[in-house]
Amino acid sequence: MTEKKYWKWKEIETHTSINDLPPVPLSLPNYGSLGETGDWRTFRPEIDKSKCNKCYICWMYCPEAVIEIDKDGYPNIDYVYCKGCMICAHECPKKAIEQVREKKEPEGE
């Protein structure tokens, strides 16, 4: 859940010449190994904290692990990487997650 250990998209060091290459390609753990996948979304899930009972079912079912629990115990969605599958909204027993159509380019970092 912590961000500290892994590289983020664009942070990873890349080679600039064949002379820098190690004998075999090594890939390092990276948030955004394919980029900022938040821009895949057609719909964005939005959590209404007033309805949320902190059951964490959304956290459990999120395939992408973009739902993180904040210090107050509420789930928060990382829109940089959320692909908008809407499983969380579909599975929320309190119907606390709303499906909102993306209007413009999703916000990056």
């Binding site: 892994y6 998209w9 753990p29 990276n30 948030y31 955004g32 190994s33 394919l34 980029g35 900022e36 996948t37 895949w40 395939p63 992408e64 692990a65 973009v66 990382d78 940089v80 990487y81 692909k83 908008g84 599958c85």
Partner: peptide, 8 residues
């Protein structure tokens, strides 16, 4: 880690 290339 999030942001990988699996489908939504």
């Amino acid at each position: 880690l999030k942001g990988n290339s699996s489908c939504a």
